[in-house]
Structure formats: C-alpha cells, structure tokens
C-alpha cells in the first residue's frame, strides 16, 4: 500500500516536471500560478514521500521502495505522455 502511494506521489511529481518543461513534452504552458504550484509540488511531493516511506518501512526498506517508486512512476509517466502525444498527433 505504501508503495502504491509512493508511486502516485512520484507520478504527480513527474507530471509537474513535464508541465514545467512543456515545450519538450508537447504540453500547454501553464500560467505563472500553475508554474509556481508545479515547482512546489515537484519539490514537496518526493520529499514528503521519502519521509513517509522511511517512517513506515524503516530506513533501508523505505529508501529502496522510494527509489523503486521513482523508477516505475517515471516509466509510467513517460509511457502516458508518449501515448498522449501519439494520440494527439493522429490525423
């Protein structure tokens, strides 16, 4: 359950990252408030997730889960963005 939560936090983080690099990822550029919010979430969500993982699972298991969630959420985010781009480019 902790891992699913970490995965969701990292997925949201990566989506914020993509919004901040909107030109690279073919996304609409967010407004100044959206950018500020995305920047805060990109920093805050993984930090909160790390604290959560370490407090629930202990330092070793928590760190391993946190890094694993980073990897798999990144893969998921990349796949979602790639598929979205492909659908958007379809004539």
């Amino acid at each position: 359950m902790t891992f699913v939560l970490l995965l969701a936090l990292w997925l949201a983080t990566f989506m914020c990252h993509a919004a901040l690099w909107s030109a690279r990822y073919g996304l609409p550029t967010p407004g100044p408030t959206g950018q500020r919010l995305a920047r805060m979430m990109r920093l805050g969500l993984p930090t909160g997730g790390l604290g959560l993982a370490v407090s629930i699972q202990g330092p070793v298991m928590g760190l391993l889960s946190w890094f694993a969630a980073l990897s798999f959420a990144g893969l998921l985010a990349a796949s979602l963005l790639a598929v979205g781009r492909r659908l958007a480019n379809r004539p």
Partner: peptide, 10 residues
C-alpha cells in the same frame, strides 16, 4: 533532468 521522462515513439 529535463529529459528524464522523454520518450518519442513516433
């Protein structure tokens, strides 16, 4: 960092 989740299938 910028391209951390960049995947261009097309």
């Amino acid at each position: 960092v910028p391209d951390i989740i960049l995947l261009r299938l097309s």
